[in-house]
Design a protein around this nucleic acid. Structure first.
Lengths: 221, 221
DNA sequence: CAAGTCTATATTGTCGACAAATAACCCATG
DNA sequence: CATGGGTTATTTGTCGACAATATAGACTTG
């Protein structure tokens, strides 16, 4: 089963989603241990279910497991965040390239529409753009790549980690309008089917984000 | 646990490794179904163990599982191979860039030594370079990136898939010496700490490989 | 008093059995 | 003869219990 679209059908699915949500949103904090009996009573399911859920969390690299010892939520370090953004730069850069190649004209038109609606909201209440809009934009391009490996890696893997970091370190720069301009240029490149430029702009866009975060982490760690 | 370095300690580990080997090497063929009771008797372990092993295989995207139906080995299509190489291009390109930045001088010297030894072998018996040497070269650069996310994705994820395709479609072009030259140039760029060039050359190197395979698949599918 | 060891406890790993859902098969019917 | 429905049978999902390992604490000893 794919983790981001499909709905939970089995008990293990549900427990996995609940656990992941609890971890990603910070309810279960980074570095803490996941006790199987404890979670078993908490979620009112058998230990086998919890075990399977933890296995899947391990697969997403959200927890680390040591044999005969147990599972801990991964520790979030500033260095880890930088590493994550390096991977994201490579992967989303490629996604933008492939999107310029593989998105249909209709999908590109939709994307332009999305950007327009964002622009309206930025103009009215400037504070909007932070979360949902940005995520939505990146989602569309990732899906537009039409490369299932890439999509899975980014949406099931990287993005949940990014969210974890965002909850812990709380990132939100003064990048609202500049980020919007960057989005606009990326979509223009995609509209022109300029794969090279689309990739380059996306990579820069993510690099800016990265350095922005790095500076923030250095000044207030 | 990390899938590529650590040794199996628990029964589920062992079963996972055995199963993965059987699948990657083609003993269990692509598209076939994995029956839990069957494997349970075959490996002489409980069904719970087989289940956990299958879960990990799903995590590597080696099998796909449908609820209440079971797990099948992923189907290998030519399109899937192209998608895989697109991801590999992005990821290994970034790995080369980071290797140019993060490898120690000693590690780079070792890498040059490796290349020399490859050169000797190519000169003596021309047929060598195909498998082990190529893999070894790429491994070193991936590890040289010092980015654990990247390393895990490539070594635990992509590389086993590549091997699966290699077993099924059997790829080996007339690229022996040209590939060697490409390796040489990449190492030169890394030695010069030229991140930009290292990434570009690695990406081209993988792109050549990709088009080479594509041509082969078109002419004899 | 510190350090090491042994014991006791709790947690993880493994197993076989039961429940639920799917797939296969047979039979009836148009 | 093909097709649809119902029943059986197999497979997956879930559970509780037992075995093995690691952690924590008490105890002994230098």
């Amino acid at each position: 089963m794919s983790f981001f679209t499909e709905k939970p059908v089995t008990a293990a699915d549900k427990t996995f989603f609940q656990l992941r949500k609890a971890i990603v949103e910070g309810e279960i904090e980074a570095g803490s241990k996941l006790s199987e009996p404890e979670l078993s009573t908490k979620f009112a399911v058998s230990r086998a279910i919890v075990r399977e859920a933890i296995n899947r969390l391990e697969a997403c690299h959200i927890v680390e497991r040591k044999a005969n010892v147990g599972a801990r939520v991964v520790a979030l370090s500033p260095e880890g965040l930088v590493e994550l953004y390096q991977v994201r730069e490579a992967l989303e850069g490629m996604a933008a390239r492939l999107a310029a190649k593989n998105m249909t004209d209709d999908e590109i038109a939709d994307l332009n529409g999305l950007l327009d609606s964002h622009f309206q909201k930025v103009k009215s209440d400037g504070s909007y753009y932070q979360e949902a809009g940005d995520v939505d934009f990146h989602y569309r391009i990732i899906l537009g790549s039409k490369n299932s490996n890439l999509i899975t890696m980014l949406l099931d893997g990287i993005y949940h980690h990014i969210r974890m970091y965002r909850v812990k370190f709380g990132m939100a720069g003064p990048r609202i309008t500049t980020a919007f301009d960057e989005h606009k240029h990326i979509v223009q490149a995609i509209s022109n089917r300029d794969e090279e430029l689309a990739e380059m702009l996306m990579r820069r866009h993510i690099m800016y984000s990265k350095t922005n975060i790095e500076n923030k982490l250095i000044t207030q760690p």
